[in-house]
């Protein structure tokens, strides 16, 4: 008997009758619902206004962007973006360094984090909880506490001002996070599934690869996106470990804070360039991201 045959057939899903509450919120009174909508609207404004403002400012000229009375209507210009890709501080290498360092470190964090997280979820070793806490506690250490020893190690290994150095630096905070998150996802998967796979003749690796991993797709995507965002936005490690050959986008942004002022137009243009790819990545995988961030609670996975 195959696994599919064992699952009882459900009646097809249809829309609930009109007026039937679909959520606890709908069961509440009109006043409560209005209050919730207002709070949500305020939260939306709180999060979106700065982003929209940044986007608009990136198209303003030098006078408009620092005008005493902020203007919503203005003559748009691409000068700020042009300025970023011409002249001595061309942004292209910074983007390339960011893509490489953040991308590779996120991929490695997910790969290694999955393996370690699976082992952590399934092991019955003594002190498992302590080990799990120790792993995540390394993520809690303030960056200032680890920067100096890491710098000395990296200097000894000639990893300063290299992309592999940055990848390794990002892994120091992404890997514990990935292990912790993935172990939580693996713990949600019933062990009976892999036991069935083992009984059916799979090796432990095959059970992991063909049965367990596909079931934690939401976790993999969530972990990858979060690791990517952490590394993409990192400034503290990049400022210490990067150099002329490996500077990333957040460093480029900081360079616009000059002795004689801040170039707000170009700063908001860089901000837009930093934010947009991450927003698009988040939107592209939002289905798995929402599921993953709630550890499957939304869809019941």
């Amino acid at each position: 008997m195959s696994a599919t045959e064992a699952v009882p057939r459900h009646p097809p899903v249809s829309a609930a009758p009109r007026g039937t509450p679909q959520s606890p919120l709908e069961e509440t009174g009109r006043g409560t619902r209005w209050a919730v909508w207002v709070i949500l609207a305020l939260f939306m404004l709180w999060t979106l206004v700065p982003l929209v403002w940044m986007l608009m400012s990136s198209f303003k000229n030098r006078t408009d962007v620092t005008a005493a009375t902020p203007q919503a209507l203005f003559q748009p210009t691409l000068d700020n973006y042009r300025g970023l890709f011409s002249g001595p501080n061309n942004l292209t290498p910074y983007i390339w360094h960011s893509v490489l360092a953040a991308g590779i470190s996120a991929v490695l964090a997910v790969c290694l984090g999955s393996l370690a997280g699976y082992g952590l979820a399934r092991t019955a070793m003594r002190g498992k909880r302590h080990l799990a806490f120790w792993i995540i506690s390394t993520r809690m250490a303030p960056i200032a506490a680890v920067v100096v020893p890491l710098f000395i190690i990296f200097r000894g290994l000639n990893l300063i001002d290299t992309i592999p150095g940055l990848v390794l630096a990002y892994l120091t905070f992404n890997l514990p996070f990935a292990i912790w998150l993935m172990s939580a996802f693996f713990a949600e998967v019933p062990p009976s599934l892999e036991e069935s796979a083992l009984v059916a003749g799979c090796t432990r690796w095959q059970a992991f690869w063909t049965v367990i991993l596909p079931l934690t797709k939401a976790g993999l995507v969530t972990t990858f996106i979060l690791c990517l965002v952490f590394a993409w936005n990192d400034y503290a490690f990049a400022v210490v470990f990067s150099g002329p050959n490996s500077q990333t986008l957040p460093i480029a942004a900081s360079q616009l804070v000059t002795q004689t002022g801040v170039d707000w137009g170009q700063l908001t243009a860089i901000g837009t360039i930093v934010v947009v790819p991450m927003m698009l990545a988040g939107l592209a995988v939002r289905r798995w991201l929402v599921t993953g961030l709630t550890l499957g609670a939304v869809t019941g996975e």
């Binding site: 920067v147 710098f151 200097r155 400022v239 050959n245 460093i251 900081s254």
Partner: peptide
């Protein structure tokens, strides 16, 4: 090669570079 940094970051970077011996 010219690396420009905001002053606080520059100070941190220079301190580490001087202390590293290279």
């Amino acid at each position: 090669n010219i690396v420009t940094l905001e002053l606080t970051a520059l100070v941190q970077r220079v301190a580490l570079d001087l202390a590293s011996g290279h």
